[in-house]
Amino acid sequence: MPADPMPLLDVRNLCVSVPANGGMIRLVENVSFCVDEAEIVGLVGESGSGKSVTAMALMGLIDSPGVQVRGSARFRGQELVGMAPRALRALRGRDIAMIFQDPMTAFTPVYTIGWQIDEQIRAHERLSRRAARARTVQLLAEMGVPDPARTAQRYPHQLSGGLRQRAMIAMALSCNPTLLIADEPTTALDVTVQAQILELLRGLRHSHGSSVLLITHDMGVVAQTCARTLVLYSGRMAESGPTATLFARPAHPYTAALLDSIPPLYGPRPHRLPAIAGLPPTPRERPAGCAFGPRCAHVHATCLPAPPALASIGPGQQAACVLPAEGTPLPPRATAQATQP
């Protein structure tokens, strides 16, 4: 379906709030984005910026008491927010699959890898044990696991982190999902394994036709992998746009600061790597105006009364910052080319 006008996943004004101290605290506020067919979208932000909460909310996996999810998330036109648990369960694992940050703890320790992948296949399709295992072995082989038949019979603790993450991806892909949500899939792995796993994720578009929502805090991973990027700060969208544009001409000071904190590969090394001063606010203590205000070098009076609205900057690029509208946009980054693949 090349001429499909409807994106695969269309998230609009997603809000997630949890009760605390008698009120509701918004962990995620008005997040909107789309994922198209066979596209990799990056969701970037510091710890606590609401990346994982957003993903978990899409999957209906938040089960803390009293949590409220509002807004809309349409997956192939089906509304995910407020969907009946049974219907959502059928979707989960089959059409939308998820892989998690820490492959060490993401498998149940007392079952073999193969058993756990079989379980997911058999939860969604009527297949015999033997047929499920055959597919499991084939999937493991596709993910580059050596000796897949024997690996399937091994327990999670017997495999290395990289192998476990491959097995995790094999499990996520076992029912040919159209959307794969990868929550920091490479954070717990060392750099060479990280590169292999990212290569694997990139290949999924062609081999399985899957779209990927890649959650990460690593700008380098985004640059290597994602077509479009969404930057979250303190549960709100700071900026979104095509990755190349975002890296070349960041419109939000937060994005720019994130990019500046990557050591340049070429040219003179800075004496000290610029870091963003201070800590991100907790959702409880978010300041009245722009949440990034207290840490922003360009903060001034117009930032303070209310959070700036998302405004269109260029083709496909949006930023929640007052600077472009006031005619003083950030300068394009000189080192942008260096960090691109």
Binding site: R92, G93, R94, F100, T105, F107, V110, E119, H124, M168
Partner: peptide, 26 residues
Amino acid sequence: GEDFMRTARAKGLSPTRVMLRHGLRT
């Protein structure tokens, strides 16, 4: 609260199966 219980739910298993086959067994 363990990761593997979240994985089990993300796989689309029923709450009963998650509780018995993954939680209780462990």
